[in-house]
Amino acid sequence: MAESMPKEHWMWKALELAKQGLDEGEVPVGCVLVKDDKILVSAHNEVGMTKDPTRHAELVALDLLRANLDKACKFRELLSTCTLYVTLEPCVMCSAALRMMGVRKVVYGFSNTRFGGCGSVLDVHSKQFQYSYSSDEQHKPNLTVSRELEVVSGLLGKEALGLLQQFYAQQNPNAPNPAKRVRLTCNELFNEKL
């Protein structure tokens, strides 16, 4: 079915978000969460602005969506039918969050060889977790973590990398004493041939 095919225009949307992040001084990573050919929520990395290292695009999006729903169980149900388009491979933290929330599928652009949790550093997307979260009504026995996260990689990866290169060509303005930091090229950071 057409719905299961990764669609480039969603990734272009995610790239737009990433670019918007770049203009605001953020690490340029963007994502859109798609259900039935409609964007439910979109976000970009907000670590710089918030000083909060957990504000990766994926988590910002999940929290935004969650804030607009009234029940936690509905949230999971909804996510189990969604596909996340994100410009950079989700890190270990975000991959675990996507697994725990039972997101069906993730389509990403460029591989994250420093932090990637969908195969690059760890295999959080496919790991067999013996998860049995069940202490109260809202945390019903959770079977979603037992299902692997479907991963498609390399959609518009070059474009995603291009934005990251623009960012890393300069200093990260959020780091302390930025002048003292050694400049790494994007290639060194991501250890990847262009």
């Binding site: 290292p53 957990t54 270990v92 933290m93 975000c94 991959s95 675990a96 725990m100 932090f115 959080v124």
Partner: peptide, 9 residues
Amino acid sequence: VMCSMALVH
């Protein structure tokens, strides 16, 4: 796993 990586970040 999520929180552990958040601690790395």
